[in-house]
């Protein structure tokens, strides 16, 4: 699993317990999502706060920007909105654009973008196994946490298996061009399923032989202190303060 960003650093968000960071990230995104799209300068405030966190977190800007690509389909949708939305129109150069459409596009773009930055901050400062521990501490149902733990543990094994199969296909002269390659790829995928499932059966037996009773042992690391919570909650509380300020000014 690629825990992108710098895993080596010991910046302040990296030292925080994972459950604290998950709560802080979700709370921050909730405040951002609940903010009305107008006035727009509130979001500038949010962006500046997040920029400060990115800067001090040791997560490189390059990491943040490269991982924002997942947003692209929704950017495309948002760019189309001013053209297809209904409502009064404004003229912008040669274009007739829907005014509510422009606000909706802004609303979608800015919230999705800020939300992604917060998610990237969480992911880039927390290694995958720690996220699992965090969810366990937050009382996510035990069996879901176990499935997640198994997935995090075996994802590189299974993707490595697929890469070996791809290399073997290529060595036999396979080129993937167009739908004619689908039966071959699908057969490989079927084989990958059988191998994954059988690995699951072996993993289960191995777990049983080590005394597995259907529950995960409690996470080993120390619980979060009130100091941890107060550090992590600075972000959602600052964002909330900016939201309150904007509401007070606009009143």
């Amino acid at each position: 699993m690629p825990p992108a960003g710098d895993v080596s650093g010991a910046s302040w968000p990296r030292r925080l317990p994972p459950q604290v960071k998950i709560v802080a990230a979700v709370a921050t995104i909730l405040v951002i999502v609940l903010t009305p799209p107008r006035p727009p300068w509130v979001f500038l405030g949010y962006a500046l706060i997040l920029a400060a966190v990115v800067q001090s977190s040791g997560v490189g800007w390059r990491t943040v920007f490269s991982r924002m690509r997942v947003e692209v389909p929704f950017v495309a949708f948002a760019v189309l909105l001013p053209f297809i939305a209904t409502g009064p129109e404004v003229t912008l150069g040669p274009l007739e654009l829907s005014e509510p459409g422009l606000w909706a596009a802004w609303n979608i773009l800015i919230k999705a973008t800020l939300g992604i930055v917060v998610s990237i901050l969480l992911a880039a400062t927390t290694e995958a196994p720690d996220l699992v521990v965090g969810l366990q501490r937050l009382h996510v149902p035990d069996i879901l946490v176990q499935i997640l733990a198994a997935m995090v543990r075996y994802v590189s094994v299974v993707t490595g298996e697929w890469q070996r199969m791809s290399r073997a296909r290529a060595a036999r002269g396979f080129h993937g061009h167009g739908p004619r390659s689908w039966p071959v790829l699908a057969r490989s995928l079927g084989t990958l399923f059988i191998r994954s499932y059988e690995r699951g059966e072996r993993v289960h037996l191995a777990m049983l032989s080590r005394g597995y009773t259907g529950r995960l042992p409690a996470a080993g690391t120390a619980a979060a202190t009130s100091a941890d919570w107060s550090v992590a909650l600075v972000l959602p509380l600052t964002v909330l303060a900016v939201a309150a300020l904007s509401w007070w000014v606009a009143r």
Binding site: Q146, L148, A149, A150, M151, Y154, V157, Y197, Y212
Partner: peptide, 13 residues
Amino acid sequence: DRTAPLAGLVAVF
């Protein structure tokens, strides 16, 4: 108790 390892490996798949 096979749920976790099997569903986990299926998730990876």
